[in-house]
Design a protein around this nucleic acid. Structure first.
Lengths: 254, 254
DNA sequence: CGAGGACTTGAGCCAGTTCAACTCATGTGG
DNA sequence: CCACATGAGTTGAACTGGCTCAAGTCCTCG
């Protein structure tokens, strides 16, 4: 089953640039044939993409911006079960109603497909369904990792882990030497707290503590420089390898 | 895409009885052709089915018994990220290494397929891949529900939720009237604690408290009778509907 | 019968929550 | 342009749910 030769991305430049899993999975001779069902949609910060228990009308992936998926208990307590960054898929195939609410955490552009049309594409592009399976699998992996974090880790460990994950996913590629890693947190404290299963106060104390002890420098509430990656990893309770940080390349920054 | 006419379960009586998602998804004229790659395997309580970071050699589903999936931090803290009951799928397609360790929580029989052979079946039986997508989606839903539980709920709420979920999944079908629901917890306190992100002591205190206040009756440490389903649901922080418990049918038992 | 494991119960302690006050940045209307 | 409101973030102080440690019971198994 070698399909690699047949694969040709038919996405726009933007979709190609971010490694859009969906568009890369669509194999077709003509651009027109395959790009018809796709539609770009913009959502402003705070707008709802899909409410909890909503009919799932469309699926797709994030082109720019950040989406947050959250769940709410009857009494109002809520948790963010995932942040979706560019290239991540959202929505669910073969599923009528959503298990989570999806909102734009900041202004976002989405590459959307009608769900039923998207499922129909599986017939012509089996590779697309395989990619969908892999995408959901990764989301499940992330959810299970997060369960470990929520069930066993202290607040400081959670914050450290969160910064390291963001650093790996969104940070500029690490220079060969130097390793001046800046981290941009794309959401406010409130969302961070809902994601990490704690309160804004505890988040604030953890971050200030890490700053006082020289592990990170606070540029502004949403931007940090990781001064000491090794110690940040120690604080996270994980190992260097889990964040793709080879020990050989790390050194302390002044 | 109407494949329903073509679907014929080729599983054994046992697979059919439990609604085995995989075997039901395999469409074939001859039993021999499709049942070849399948193999039943038995695992004794405590045996490892798949270790964390292991090569995923086979996938399949649970025929009888219970599997536990768990993750471990470098320092040894661990959490159970899921229990797999009969009819649940285990393993991961299109994935080389496992994100979780899988062990038999009690003696278990598994219906196993070589992973690569299983993926090959997708070509002939697209319905099988669809079912796989749905299966992973349900696992993701469960993981997200659990994140809500771990991030926001008190220990008593978690225990109540756990009992209600087990009651729905494994309990005898509720009589039209009476609703004498007995719940069998298929794992020991230690596993319950690891699943609910707490300690055996806290689990014990919660259960004893529910017994003292007349919500459940303790038959033995792993068997309970739900005396007051309504109050158990209240304790869980959820609503009746979330556990398929129509209010009209519930009444307090003496 | 003794050892070991599962479960329960008690008592003290602490991480993290809650509540409250304060700073600072942003925006709005007179 | 200032007065004021509003929201985000930080910091302090007190409280508490659940953890830790310790002891005890009960059951199973060799």
């Amino acid at each position: 089953m070698d399909t690699r030769d047949g694969i040709a991305s038919i996405g726009t430049a933007r979709c190609e640039a971010i490694g859009c899993a969906i568009c890369a999975g669509i194999v077709g001779k003509t651009r027109a044939e395959t790009s018809r069902p796709r539609r770009f949609r913009r959502f402003r910060k705070g707008e709802t993409v899909l409410a909890e228990a909503d009919e799932i009308g469309f699926v797709g992936n994030v082109v720019s911006g950040v989406l947050r998926m959250h769940k709410t208990l009857p009494d109002g307590r809520q948790v963010i079960v995932g942040l979706l960054l560019p290239a991540d898929m959202f929505g669910r195939v073969f599923t009528h109603t959503s298990n989570v609410a999806i909102e734009a955490a900041i202004d976002a552009t989405l590459c959307c497909f009608n769900r039923l049309q998207f499922e129909k594409l599986f017939e012509r592009f089996p590779e697309l369904e395989h990619r969908t399976v892999v995408s959901i699998s990764h989301e499940l992996d992330a959810a299970q990792d997060w369960m470990l974090l929520l069930a066993t880790q202290s607040v400081i460990e959670r914050v450290a882990t969160f910064l390291l994950i963001l650093s790996r996913r969104t940070g500029p590629h690490p220079a060969e030497a130097g390793m001046m890693r800046s981290v941009h947190v794309p959401v406010a404290r409130r969302d961070m707290a809902a994601y990490l299963g704690t309160t804004v106060e505890s988040i604030s104390r953890s971050i200030q503590h890490m700053a006082r002890s020289g592990v990170v420098r606070i540029i502004d509430p949403q931007n940090f420089v990781i001064l000491d990656p090794r110690r940040l990893v120690e604080l996270s309770g994980h190992t260097l390898e889990e964040f793709d940080l080879p020990a050989a390349r790390l050194r302390r920054l002044g």
